[in-house]
Every structure is written in structure tokens, then in C-alpha cells.
Amino acid sequence: MKKNGILDVKYSLTQILYFASFSALMGYASVYLLDKGVSNSVIGTTLALVSIIAVFTQPMAASAVDKKVIRLQPLIIVIVALAVILSLCLYFFKLPTIILLCVFVGVVTCMMTIQPLLNSLAFLFEKYGIEVNYGLARGLGSAAYALASAVLGYLVEDFGTSMIPLFYIIGNILLIVVVYTYVVPKNQRHVVHREENQHEEVKQEQLSFFQFCSIYKKFMIFVVGVILVFFTHTIINNFFIQVITPIGGTESQMGIAVFIAAIVELPAMAMFNVMRKKIDCSTLLKISVIIFGLKHLLTFLATNVFMVYVAQVLQIGAYAIFIPASVYYVNEVISKPDLVKGQSMVTVGITASGIIANLAGGILLDTIGVHDLLMIGVVVSVIGALIVFMSIEKKRASIE
């Protein structure tokens, strides 16, 4: 595989802009909606609804790309453009609560739908003989998430929650511009034409969702484990202000906590290509789910904001390892014609955890409180880690 510096820069910018926008959208969802008079239960229900919709839109979008119904690049642009239009409605108009929630659901759904597509974008150029450094780009995305979260914490305290939609409007407009500029170098285009001619006679019919589940049974059990591991992760991220307020935390301290977790992801993700050459992705995934459990346990035991900061540092071995490891793991255990669908299944699993976590989290916060909710989350996270351990596979000898 050859390297192409311009494509590496563009892909890094794509991840940076996406996650900077996503930090404002999801990291401050509770802050934004609470300020609009929405209760915890309704916030949880709203985020759960987004997750339910995304469970369908993510594989649908992936399937459309796999079946060559639409190319990956224009599909991403169309979805992000729709998110921008809806975001402008949030920023410029004072909407009734029910309309506001519907528009918010639309924005988040768009952004969650393109997440697996952006992962697949990293491997789009492999057929042209070009390798993109996914780990570095994803690490820079986490750094952008960190910086955006920290900055937003202070901006919201000083200027109010109107800064939140403005932030992701700007970020998404820039994202459209960057994705639009993706161009394969002319001297590499002949590679894909040659490969397409060689494989023209062995084109494979695309699998339906149920066919995929039937063929990749162990992989789907792995996805179930992912759902459980990410249950507490989702609760902490989406209800962070509710988690730290009882121990004396503020919006700016929440921003700092999110900054810590996201910034420590950068070195781990940037060095991931080096790590995976020495340690199997299956082993890295096992390590990551163990550290996830430790992070959730420490957050549960936290009695002050400093302990939350310490827990956030563990992100370096949890989310920071899991995300790139899972992306490469899919490429190792899923056949080439089903790769986009395979990438979407992991994202769907994380999204499905959002359905449970957001719906249950909002209701349980209003009924049993944050302490007991985090205790339940620790138990669920441990069960998920055990399932991941039992279902993980070694790299297949031949993936066609």
C-alpha cells in the first residue's frame, strides 16, 4: 500500500470536524435540553428515539453503498447538509418544545448515521492501492472532541446554550467542504479499473440483515457484548452534568472532564498502527473492555470531581483502544463484500446501547438517582466484557 499525504490530511480533517461537531451535539445534549425546560426522562426518551432510528438508518445507508445504489462520498455530503438545515432551525427559531425535540432528533440521527460511513471512508482508497492512517485521524478527532468540549463549557457559562447549535452548524458546513474535496489521484485510478475487471465475474449478492446474522453468528454475539459494555459509557457521556452535579461539579468542570477523556485518546489512537502490529486486535479489544469496566467502577465510586478526572484518564485504554481495534477487527473477520455492513453493525451495537441507556437512564435518574444508576451500569458493563471475551475471534486465514 502507498501513502498519500493529502488524503491523510483530508481524512484527519474529516474526523476532526465530525467529532468537534459531535461534542457539541451529544456531549452537551443534556445541558442544551435542560435549559429548554426538558426533563431528564424526556431527554432520555428523546436520545433513545434517536438511537432507535439510527439502528435502522445506519445499516440502510451502509447497504445502499454496498449495493452501489449511491457512492459513499455524496451520501455523506447529503446527510450532513440535511443536519445543517435542521440545525439552522434550532439556532434561528424559538420552537415549541415538541417541534424542538423533533428537529433535534433529526440532527442527531443524521450525525449518527454517517459515523460508520466515515469509518468506511478510511478504507475506500485501499482499492486504489492507497492506505489512510485511520488511527491517527481518529485520534485527532478525539483531540478535537476534547478541545471543543472544554471550550464549549466556558462559552455556555458565559454566553448561554445558544452557542451549542451554532458550534455544530459551523463544524458541519466545514465538514461538507472537506468531504467534497476528496479526489483519487489520477495515477492511481487505473488500479481499481483493473481490479473491477478481474472480479467482474465473481460479484456476490449482498446479504440481508438476517443472512448476515446467520453467517456471522459469533460476530453478532460480540456485538451484543458491545451493547452492554457501552451501556454505562453512554449514560455517563449523555448525562454527564447529572453525574457530576451531586459531587459539586459545574458545566465548565464537565467540559474539563470530557476534555481529559478525549485528549488522552490521541496518543493511543495515533500509535494504534504500531500496537496492532505487535498485539492482535482481538487481544486489544479484550484489554479495552476490561479498562472500560474499571473506568465505570471508578466513576461510580467518585466522591469528588478529581476522582471523576482520574476515571476519565482511563479512556486511554478503553474507548481509545476499542474504536480503532473494532474497525480493524471487522476487516479481519468479515468478508470484503460485507465490510461496510460489518462496520455498521458495530456502530449499530453502540447505537443500540444508546436506546437502552438513554431511555432507562433518563427514567432511572428521576426515580432511583444517579448513584444507583451507575451501580447498575457497572454490573452491566462487566457482563458485556465477559460476552466480548467469549465471542472474540482470531483473524481469519482468508477473507475474500
Rank of each mutant, 00 (worst) to 15 (best):
I79V: 15
T232M: 08
I241K: 01
V264C: 07
R396K: 15
T245Y: 05
V340P: 03
A81S: 14
A270N: 11
A148F: 02
A257G: 06
V264W: 03
I6V: 12
M111N: 08
G141Q: 02
V274H: 14
G225H: 01
P116Y: 01
I287C: 15
L47G: 01
P185R: 09
V313K: 00
P246Q: 04
V346C: 09
A62L: 12
A81T: 15
Y18K: 09
K394C: 07
V107G: 04
S214N: 14
H371I: 15
L34Y: 00
L298I: 15
G384I: 05
T181P: 01
S335H: 12
F322D: 04
Y91R: 12
A54P: 02
T14C: 05
A268T: 06
R138H: 13
V289I: 07
F272D: 03
V274K: 12
I77S: 09
Y145L: 07
L147D: 09
Y329T: 07
F104E: 01
I76S: 00
Q343S: 11
K277I: 07
N273M: 06
S63F: 09
A83Y: 06
G171I: 06
V69T: 10
G135S: 07
A24V: 00
F159P: 01
S51H: 06
A146G: 09
E393I: 11
V274C: 13
H190R: 13
R71L: 12
S12W: 00
A311M: 02
S120I: 09
S326A: 11
P96I: 03
A62N: 09
V80S: 02
G354R: 00
E393N: 12
S51W: 04
T299G: 04
V258G: 10
V258T: 12
P59S: 09
A302K: 00
Y28M: 00
T161F: 00
